[in-house]
Design a binder for these strands. Sequence first.
DNA 1: ATAGTCATGTAATGAGTTACATGATTGC
DNA 2: GCAATCATGTAACTCATTACATGACTAT
Lengths: 170, 170
Amino acid sequence: MSLRHAVLGLLAERSASGYDLMKLFDVSLANVWPATQSQLYSELGKLADTGLVDVSAEGPRGRKEYTITEAGLAELRHWLTDVQPTRVVRSDMLLRVFFLGRLSPEQARAYLHGQAQLARKQLEHIESIRAFVESGSDDLSVYGRLVLDYGRRLAESQREWAEWAENQIG
Amino acid sequence: MSLRHAVLGLLAERSASGYDLMKLFDVSLANVWPATQSQLYSELGKLADTGLVDVSAEGPRGRKEYTITEAGLAELRHWLTDVQPTRVVRSDMLLRVFFLGRLSPEQARAYLHGQAQLARKQLEHIESIRAFVESGSDDLSVYGRLVLDYGRRLAESQREWAEWAENQIG
DNA sequence: ATAGTCATGTAATGAGTTACATGATTGC
DNA sequence: GCAATCATGTAACTCATTACATGACTAT
């Protein structure tokens, strides 16, 4: 049920339409909590039904601007402070590792080599957007940079692991 | 569609019933690909329908032992070598970080402090099962240890990050 | 005019969770 | 006899993905 809170979190910064939120998602939350357009719209509908957001304005082309309500803010705060994060790590990359014994050692090494390379690419990418996001002093940017740094560290240790693991096979 | 391959991967080691697989899951794959009992049973049904596994024996209490077929092995190998892992990282722990600006600095620091502590607990836990899994020379154990080491590194960099991030707030 | 962007929605399907239901067999 | 474990399944629901459908406005 985290999409709901992702939406509330963004609307807490500023009011927005579904369309606006979609674009915001793509440049911020998408890396930690992907969502599709249809999910967003239906979630907004549900949030409005339960009174956590209001339609605060209607614009051209049927545009609806949503604003978070007091109840919505309370729910967001509750989620932030009282609800324990549930770390469900689902990784088909690691799942494959369990079964590398089905392949030849060369193939297994190739797989891990590929993962190391992917991690390097990921690192490059993160470094490249880093400069881009260096400015921005609003909350979302400030804390977004913490998240970005998590990503950097993750990619780095993934690279190290894959390189190490490749050498473990033989 | 990875649950399917998780099941195929386990059945490639040895034939087993749904019940057996469930227990195997809990001690091996559960950390990278959790699954519930009902998911497992229905997946086994679908796999049997599509001929990727066979019911090779029936035992007491309606027990059905499943065995992977040639087609199943081919599908597993195909998935291992030709299908790119899709890294969908969904983390409500990181999602919360984006919105820490909604809280007081003290609360935000407390959140990150809690995450650091959790990572330490996780590390301890991993170290404790490490000794336990040190033996075992079958493929699943050998490669399972690679996965375990990934978990160790992950927990470690998570701890470092959380400690760092805590100090970034102020 | 027409291409591009703004803007919202529905339908179908698959994946995952929780809870319930049922009963056989084994070991003490 | 009884508790524990073995063993399979169904139902209801939520969450997520993909594809489709529709149309208004804006800038050139």
